[in-house]
């Protein structure tokens, strides 16, 4: 009988440990978003991605609809090619929509925000955002501000 309580509690301990790992994988690293849902992939070319990383979120009107899967340099155009996966049930994004890289808060992470265009055709799997807006680089902003004020005078 004593041995039985030992066995049961060891079994419970092992289960709890495994469960903790699974919860960490699913809930904390957000594994389910990738594997569970149907998605389609879209690309966009950006002049500058700032610190955008794979797994950053893609948001429309503040709602997460997908994730960035790859950020790489396009050697011909010297631009950054960003691949993202968007949930299949959001299948009505007009092709002239704008993808812009924005920052959550002053120090928060970079993500892609989508502003809806007016076209009646929608972006399909393998499609591409023609209209993009690069990340705002703080130094450039300050530079522009200084130059702008100089030219005004």
């Amino acid at each position: 009988m004593r041995m039985r309580t030992v066995e049961i509690s060891v079994g419970g301990f092992m289960l709890a440990g495994m469960l903790a790992l699974v919860v960490l994988a699913l809930k904390v690293s957000g594994l389910s978003l990738e594997s569970g849902k149907q998605t389609y992939s879209v690309t966009g070319m950006f002049d500058n991605t700032g610190t955008l990383k794979p797994r950053a979120k893609v948001a429309l009107a503040g709602v997460i609809i997908g994730r960035v899967t790859k950020v790489e340099l396009d050697k011909q155009t010297y631009m950054a090619k960003v691949e993202m996966e968007i949930d299949s049930n959001v299948d009505n994004i007009p092709i002239d929509s704008t993808a812009s890289i924005v920052t959550a808060g002053l120090l928060g992470e970079k993500y892609i925000g989508i502003s809806i265009g007016g076209d009646i055709d929608y972006i399909k799997d393998g499609g591409r955002f023609e209209d993009t807006q690069s990340a705002v680089i703080l130094e450039e902003l300050i530079g522009k501000f200084l130059l702008g004020s100089v030219s005004d005078e």
């Binding site: 790992l21 960490l24 994988a25 809930k27 904390v28 690293s29 957000g30 594994l31 978003l33 797994r55 950053a56 979120k57 997460i64 959550a104 928060g108 992470e109 993500y111």
Partner: peptide
Amino acid sequence: GSFWSSMQASVSLVADIGNGL
């Protein structure tokens, strides 16, 4: 929502959970 999403955006399964393991 943003508490979890900021976590999920930066925690990677292999690099963080795997290496910790």
